[in-house]
Simulated assay, not measured.
Amino acid sequence: MSKNTPKAIRGTQDIFGADAEAFAFVVETFERVRKLYRFRRAEMPVFEKTEVFSRAIGETTDVVSKEMYSFNDRGDTSLTLRPEFTAGIARAYLTNGWQQHAPLKLATHGPLFRYERPQKGRYRQFHQIDAEILGAGEPQADVELLAMADQLLKELGIEGVTLHLNTLGDAQSRDAWRAGLIEYFEAVSGELSEDSQERLHKNPLRILDSKDSRDKAFVADAP
């Protein structure tokens, strides 16, 4: 190899040999299981207008504010390499008139991109499998996704998995909780981290995830 040969970009990987076979096995198993559950295959662009992700994920999240690969094209339009699948799927669902097929069960897989600090098991270009049910408000849709995921794990030979369920409540209780959080954190806003001060009125629930010691002192007693 020449000394001038460029190396792979940090946070990416070349997959070969046994690793490539294992990678293919995961994808093939996912494809087989999603067909059993009648999830339809979909392909979305690798990049979207930046607003697709900033509006859907939230401008105050770390993904949007710190981790997205964004750039302006020659037409000076801000574009972003997809950091996750759901926002692009929702955009396609709305702009292509896929509502006529609701409830719509979609599945996809492929590379995603986040500018994170590379470490073991975390890459800047990584791969995900994804399943979504759009246009269904019933809890049975969530149950179906969980059942599909459970079968996928079993067919991949992955054991010892424990499921933890959580809920943020319905729209009314979420709004009341959000108002309670804002009132609570406003009283100590001057002692919060800069990130949490910015999130206070935009997305106060994000403060609860803060790793900053200044925030942790108040999070424990939050409503």
Rank of each mutant, 00 (worst) to 15 (best):
T162N: 15
A149S: 14
H109S: 14
Q197D: 06
G75S: 12
I182L: 05
K202E: 13
F218G: 00
V219L: 10
E144T: 03
G190P: 11
T77K: 13
R10D: 13
R55M: 00
R117G: 01
T5Y: 12
I133H: 01
A90E: 02
Y37N: 10
T162C: 08
V46H: 10
F53S: 03
R174A: 05
V161F: 08
F53Q: 03
R82F: 02
N166C: 10
K7P: 00
A20M: 11
F85V: 02
R206A: 14
S196G: 11
S78H: 07
R114N: 09
L208M: 15
Q125Y: 04
R10V: 11
A136H: 10
K35T: 10
R124E: 09
I133T: 11
S65Y: 01
G157W: 09
G17H: 05
F113N: 04
V188Y: 02
A8E: 03
L181Y: 05
A56W: 03
L36Y: 11
F71A: 10
T86F: 04
I158W: 03
N166Y: 08
I182D: 00
G160R: 11
G160F: 01
E194M: 01
R122W: 03
A179P: 01
L153H: 09
G17N: 12
S213V: 13
F47D: 10
A217N: 06
A141P: 05
A217V: 14
L81S: 04
F126G: 06
T5S: 12
P139C: 08
G157V: 06
R74I: 08
R206I: 12
R32M: 11
K105R: 15
L79G: 04
T5P: 00
N4P: 00
G11Y: 10
E155A: 01
L36H: 11
R124M: 05
L153T: 08
L168R: 11
F39M: 03
L205Y: 05
V63Y: 02
R178I: 07
D212H: 11
H109G: 02
P118F: 07
D62N: 05
R114S: 06
R40S: 15
L208K: 05
A141M: 08
A24H: 15
T61G: 08
E31A: 13
S2C: 10
M1G: 15
K216C: 06
S2A: 13
P6Y: 09
R41E: 15
T29I: 06
S189E: 15
L79Y: 12
R214Q: 13
G110M: 11
W177S: 04
F30A: 07
L145I: 15
F85K: 02
